[in-house]
Write a protein that binds this DNA or RNA. Structure first.
Length: 978
DNA sequence: CGCTCCTAACC
DNA sequence: AGGTTAGGAGCGA
């Protein structure tokens, strides 16, 4: 190396983690190998290579190397055994990519440098010192503060992602000291992520100030007695040795023996063919194209490389300490690939198949010492399955009866906390104390005090089944459970098929463990004989509750590895898990409802209902129950002899609205009365009479959102369902006026306009639709105009209505039968409409054909965000069943993508509001609508922010070719805001 | 009491 | 015609 040469050193290990975390999609190759980080790494490296070829920038490297950490034990561990001891294992889908990334560097024809027993930073320091000594310049591609100490004349740090170059002045600006004092600063401050202790109570600001005042660490420590602030002085005196140790830990070793001499890092022209062969093997089509273009190599002429990653010689690692099992420690402590994802899945499946359950081994934990001892086991393994037992099914009302835990398969216990006498109140009168009767229980507050640090410990993964329930219960006791995994959501991400029984624990246990857990009914009874779990015998509850925790833990071991193996980790990590706390908070807040408005409506409805019942009896000539379709059918089609049309599945006369309206159109009086009666009965029975029963003492209703009950990724709402509050008719809308905002606040409703049609336009790539959306046109009128040749100006409303029905039909996987039914036209005519539609928009037919073919081949379809909807019955020999599954498969990517988008918006919303200093509270989600409670004086600022977060929700993962439009409005009730 | 059927509310 | 939840009727155990 000579004067004027320029060495580029890439901090490869930091690069990997940045690539993994910064780039959203978890991509994988067709054989299932995750390559998201490899992709991010290659893209960053290529960008760097491209930049460095750009002569206009003026920093052209002559020497280049990518440096990696080789092992986790280095000379620093001899200095301090706790060094980096708190490092958690890398994400399991990242582990198998390490080897591929080293392959990638070789494919770029760049030196790949690592050395056992040394950190990348030490190698970087050594090369830097040698390069500077030889008169060269150095650019270290990293943003790690540990490397700041190397900055100086001719040496800069380059943060590629932020496109920032850091010289001495920038370091001074950032840390308050020049690079040469960085070591002293780090020695004082310490580093929690590396477990460098530093001096307690001294942060970066104080450290910079002290170094400014005293010059350097040794002077500071020698003169620490002069410091005025008592605590600071004492700490510096007491922890002086610790500061010196920290200094040795953070000081980089410039004398690392190098296997590859500096001069061998000389940069030469990349071998385009070698690189492209590798990129093709990784299936990075975009990057392959770009590299091919820049290096002027024909990609198609290059044969795909055979990339083989070294596999393990050893068998399955089922040590619970190796949490996710994908990592095995080798002799030198380096994490390396132990098994392919598929092999791990298979090992875990075999483990589950051989599982046996011994309920008698479960512990009943009745004192604090036993609880602490049990939880200490979780500290060892880093894993804790838990389940809360409450005396009500709703997390909002339930009182805690107890908590169960499992730390390893078969190792589980139950902690009774709120149990009462199984014999009811009688014993309250006797002198026998509760404890004498049912045994001791840890006082609730004491137990919570012990649980809190464990449930909130970032190093212990809490595993639950439907964690939204348990985290909400714990939230009500002031505990924020984190981090967590949820077996229900893992199962749901893996396969949300309708044909499956569901994702409840009992179903999952039978499906994956072949074990039938104790049924809740068998423990507590049902119906009239039902008891609260808190009133059941504790020994029995221990068997039930501890089993649930045990089952949950075992399910997790089977299911979690499948996420990576099947390419669904990003769906789970980005669309499922982060939504849990968001929904828990929405449920906890509830929405305010005006009881008076509902009660007035109930009265009004009752009056009308009574009048209608009288009319109905008179028209029918007898008293009967208009609510009984059976009786009604007999009256209409038997007694009155009206022309009966359809029959239902079970052979009864159909009396649904459609039938009744047709009869009404023929001039019969009774059917329209029935229709009106039914509507009122529905509104009264389901809404105005029932909603008040769901209100809490503050007048708020807390729905429960289910994240795992639809096949497409939509949420559902129950107890009560707030996603089907009437909106279509005027009387129905009146119910919405009862959803109000408290004094000083307003309700904001924000909804996506035509989101599914927009998604269809994007996915199927329909030019006319995309253009119409870009120009903000009336999409149904445009469709009508295109189909029927009627100008949009002055279009008859019926023409537009038909086009609208067709557009919806398309989303639903149109059939002539369905469209005919919807428009009340002959099936032949509906068939002609569809034919014409496909002629005008041939891309739609292509999309439908491709989607069906994909679903038949794979058994599932995917949303733009990778969520899968499975349709195994699409291969059914039964034509009707096949057709049904085809339509569902066509609909699922559209409906599911819309569901993914609003999930992303919800996940980001709270953070965005907080960042803007706004206090809006998200309360409800209705598929394409979000409802917030907003202080009046913040409404103006909140509306545009909510609109923006929703409209930009697909980004950056997906950049839709149509704009997403969001309508948002504020008012004092939901009806007016909508 | 628990299940199925029918109907209807929503997107 | 895609995706839901809820309530009442009716029926069998």
């Amino acid at each position: 190396m000579n004067k004027g040469d320029h060495l580029f050193l890439v901090d490869g290990s930091a690069y990997i983690f940045r690539a993994y975390h910064a780039l959203p999609p978890l991509t994988r190759k067709s054989d299932g190998m995750p390559v998201g980080a490899v992709s991010g790494f290659c893209n960053m490296l290529w960008k760097l290579v491209e930049e460095s070829r750009d002569t206009s920038v003026g920093t052209i490297p002559t020497h280049f190397a990518v440096i990696f950490d080789h092992s986790s034990t280095t000379f620093r561990n001899e200095l301090y055994d706790q060094y980096k001891a708190n490092r958690t294992a890398p994400p399991e889908d990242l582990v198998p990519q390490f080897a591929l990334i080293r392959e990638a560097v070789r494919a770029f024809d760049l030196p790949c440098i690592e050395k056992q027993g040394f950190e990348a930073d030490d190698l970087i320091a050594t090369y830097t010192r040698q390069a500077v000594a030889a008169g060269g310049d150095v650019t270290i591609v990293s943003s790690d503060k540990d490397l700041m100490q190397l900055v100086g004349p001719g040496v800069i740090l380059y943060d590629q992602m932020k496109d920032k170059r850091l010289g001495p002045e920038e370091v001074k600006e950032k840390f308050g000291v020049y690079p040469e004092k960085m070591i002293d600063l780090q020695a004082l401050v310490g580093d929690t992520s590396d477990n460098v202790p530093g001096v307690p109570g001294i942060g970066p600001k104080t450290a910079a100030q002290l170094l400014d005042d005293y010059g350097d660490l040794e002077t500071l420590l020698a003169r620490a007695g002069e410091i005025k602030q008592a605590k600071r002085r004492e700490n510096l005196l007491e922890f002086a040795e610790q500061a010196r140790l920290s200094k040795r830990l953070v000081t980089l070793d410039c004398e690392t023996p190098l296997d590859t001499p500096l001069d061998d890092l000389f940069l030469h022209e990349p071998d385009g063919e070698k690189l492209i062969a590798f990129l093709k093997a990784m299936e990075f089509t975009t990057l392959t194209r770009r590299v091919a273009a820049t290096l002027e190599v024909s990609a198609s002429a290059v044969e795909t490389a055979k990339v083989e990653v070294e596999g393990p010689a050893r068998g399955p690692d089922l040590d619970p300490a190796a949490a996710n099992g994908a990592i095995a420690s080798s002799e030198d402590g380096a994490a390396r690939l132990a098994m392919t994802p598929a092999a791990l899945v298979e090992a875990r499946r075999a483990e589950a198949a051989g599982a046996s359950f011994d309920r008698s081994a479960y512990l009943t934990i009745r004192d604090e010492a036993a609880l602490s001892a049990f939880l200490a086991e979780a500290q060892e393994t880093g894993i804790l399955a838990f389940d809360t037992e409450t005396d009500s099914l709703s997390a909002m009302n339930g009182r805690l009866a107890g908590v169960s835990f499992a730390v390893a398969p078969g190792r589980a216990g139950y902690v009774p906390l709120g149990h009462v006498s199984p014999n009811g109140e009688a014993d309250l009168l006797s002198d026998k104390s509760l404890e004498d009767e049912i045994g001791p229980q840890i006082p609730l507050e004491r137990a919570m005090a012990i649980l809190k640090p464990v449930l909130e410990d970032p190093a212990i993964l809490k595993i639950g089944q439907n964690t939204k329930y348990d985290t909400l219960v714990m939230l009500r006791h002031g505990i924020v459970v984190a981090p967590f995994d949820d077996t229900m959501l893992i199962s749901y991400a893996l396969d949300a098929s309708a044909s499956l029984a569901g994702h409840g624990m009992d179903e999952l246990s039978e499906r994956f463990l072949g074990h039938k857990p104790i049924a809740f009914k068998d423990l507590c009874g049902s119906g009239r004989n039902a008891r609260a779990i808190s009133a059941c015998e504790i020994d029995k509850v221990t068997e039930y509750a501890a089993e649930d925790a045990d089952v949950t833990l075992r399910l997790w071991r089977v299911l979690k590895p499948r996420l990576v193996a099947e390419g669904l980790a990003s769906v789970y990590e980005r669309l499922e898990k982060p939504l849990v706390p968001v929904l828990a908070r929405m449920e906890e807040r509830g929405v305010m409802v005006d009881r008076q408005i509902l009660s007035r409506l109930s009265g009004r409805f009752a009056q009308k209902q009574g009048a209608l019942e009288a009319d109905i009896a008179e028209l029918a000539g007898e008293e009967f129950n208009p609510g009984s379709p059976k009786q009604l059918g007999e009256i209409l089609f038997g007694k009155l002899g009206l022309p009966g049309g359809k029959k239902t599945k079970s052979g009864q006369w159909s009396t649904d609205v459609k039938v009744l309206e047709e009869l009404a159109a023929e001039g019969h009086a009774l059917p329209s009365k029935i229709v009106e009666w039914r509507q009122l009965t529905k509104l009264k029975g389901t809404y105005t009479d029932t909603l008040p029963n769901h209100m809490d003492e503050r007048g708020r209703i807390h729905t429960s959102y289910s994240m795992a009950s639809t096949t497409t990724g939509r949420l559902s709402s129950s107890e009560p369902n707030l996603q089907n509050i009437p909106v279509r008719t005027e009387e129905g809308r009146a119910i919405r006026t009862a959803f109000v905002a408290p004094e000083g606040t307003l309700l904001v409703s924000a909804d996506y306009s035509q989101i599914e049609l927009r998604i269809l336009a994007h996915i199927a790539d329909i030019p006319q639709l995309k253009q119409a959306f870009q120009e903000g046109l009336d999409i149904h009128a445009m469709t009508a105009s295109e189909m029927f040749g009627v100008p949009v100006e002055g279009m008859p409303s019926d023409v537009r209505r038909r086009a609208k029905a067709i557009n919806f039909g398309i989303i639903y996987g149109i059939s002539a039968f369905g469209l005919a039914n919807q428009l009340a036209i002959p099936r032949e005519e509906a068939g002609l409409y569809i034919k014409r539609y496909f002629e005008r928009f041939p891309g739609i037919r292509d999309y439908m054909d491709e989607t069906k073919a994909y679903a038949k081949q794979h058994g599932y379809v995917e949303t733009l965000f990778g969520r899968r909807a499975h349709y195994p019955d699409i291969r059914s020999p039964n034509a009707a069943m096949r057709a049904f599954n085809e339509r569902a498969a066509i609909n699922a990517p559209i409906q599911g993508t819309a569901a993914d988008i609003i999930r992303r918006a919800m996940i980001r919303m709270e953070g965005a509001l907080a960042e803007a200093g706004l206090s809006a509270k998200m309360l409800l989600q209705v598929h394409d609508e979000l409802v917030f409670e907003v202080p009046e004086d913040e409404v103006e600022a909140t509306l545009p922010l909510v609109r923006r977060v929703m409209a930009e929700a697909p980004m950056p993962r997906v950049d839709l070719s149509v704009p997403l439009e969001v309508d948002a409005k504020a008012a004092n009730n939901w009806e007016a805001a909508h």
